[in-house]
Amino acid sequence: MTKRTSTSRTLPWFARPGARTWRCDAVPAEVRAFHTTLPDYAPTPLTELPALAAEFGVGRVVVKDESSRLGLPAFKALGASWAVQRVLDDRAAGGAAPGPVTLVTATDGNHGRAVARMARLLGQQAHVFVPRGVHPAAVAAIVAEEVEVTEVPGPYDEAVRLAAEEAAVPDAVLVQDTAWPGYERIPGWIVEGYSTLCAEIDEQLTAAGVVGGPDLVAVPVGVGSLAQAVIAHYRSRPSGHAPALLSVEPEAAACVLESLTRGEPVSVTTGDTTMAGLNCGTPSSIAWPYLHGGLDAAVAVTDADSARAAEDLAAFGVSSGPCGAATLAGLRAALTGEGAEERRTALGLGPASVVVLLSTEGTAANPRSATDH
Rank of each mutant, 00 (worst) to 15 (best):
T2P: 09
K3G: 14
R4N: 13
W13T: 11
F14M: 05
A19S: 09
A19W: 01
T21W: 00
R23I: 02
D25H: 04
V31L: 13
F34M: 13
H35Q: 06
L38E: 03
L46F: 04
L46K: 13
T47R: 15
E55D: 15
V61N: 04
K64D: 08
E66C: 03
S67G: 03
G71M: 08
F75R: 09
K76D: 04
A83T: 06
V87E: 03
V87L: 07
L88K: 10
L88G: 07
L88Q: 08
P100W: 02
T105L: 04
T107M: 09
H111C: 14
A114N: 05
A116I: 10
M118W: 14
A126W: 01
F129W: 12
V130C: 12
V134L: 12
V134W: 05
P136S: 03
A140G: 07
A144G: 09
V147G: 11
T150I: 07
T150V: 14
V152A: 09
V152H: 11
V152D: 11
G154S: 14
A167I: 02
A167E: 01
A167Y: 00
A168S: 04
V169Y: 02
P170N: 09
P170Q: 08
D171W: 05
G182M: 09
I186V: 15
P187T: 10
P187H: 11
T196D: 05
E200S: 12
I201K: 10
E203W: 00
G209W: 01
G209Y: 02
V210D: 00
V211I: 11
G213I: 10
P214I: 08
L216Y: 00
L216Q: 01
L216V: 02
P220K: 11
V221A: 15
S225M: 06
A229P: 03
P238W: 02
P238F: 04
A253S: 15
A253W: 07
C255S: 15
S259P: 05
T261L: 10
V268Q: 05
D272E: 14
M275W: 07
L278V: 11
C280T: 12
A287D: 03
P289T: 01
Y290K: 15
Y290T: 06
G293P: 04
L295V: 13
A298I: 07
A298F: 03
A300S: 15
A300C: 13
S306E: 01
A315Y: 00
G321P: 13
G324H: 01
T327K: 13
L331K: 13
A340L: 04
R344L: 14
L349C: 06
G350I: 05
V355P: 10
L358I: 15
A365G: 11
H373N: 10
